[in-house]
Amino acid sequence: MLYFSDLLQYSDVFLSGLKTTVELTVLTTILGVALGTVCATVRQYGNRASQRVVSVYVELIRNTPFIVQLFFIFFGLPALGMMLSPWQASMIALTINLGAYSAEIIRAGLASISKGQMEAAKVLGLNFRQTLTRVIFIPAFEKIYPALTSQCIIVMLGSAVISQISVQDLTYAANLVQSRNFRAFESYFVTALMYLGLSILLRFAFNALGKRLFAYRTAN
């Protein structure tokens, strides 16, 4: 038998976990995409050496598990004298992780913009920074927006792992509740549904933002 009603008394625990997960997601999505944008720009337009540095970063992150990255930052860095709280370590790990994945995605967007756009901006007298922010970025992001959205959702779901360094996120809440009432299935099932809700919400938020950013597609 399943007893979902047994969970009700723990709604505070779940809500506080949900809050942590949402906060971290919002923060790291913004920071991660920002980092990814910078790295993608360097990778696409930078000099040979800086391109190399970014490539190494991107490949290192993309080819190792997030949980190992998290442990490295949380347990490993203090050994070098960098003390981090679980929350700080998680934020850094998530940002670095999303940064690498989004760098690869955004770079594909930048590469898809024709050289003519760059030249048109140049002959109008725009400097490089103006050209990027005013001319290149929006059409580039439009090209890869669905992929970027999916990646941000993947990273949000991956954040469940931060419960392992005792950040009190949604997964931590689920573990706590099931250890109290021994209703593991119900507890994890409900939590999984909450993550599903978050995925849908995040996609919804991205779509709403996209509608504003790329209004030129739908305008008449």
Partner: peptide
Amino acid sequence: QGTPLLMQMFL
């Protein structure tokens, strides 16, 4: 795709 792999493992 919409739920964490970790949660699937717990379940």
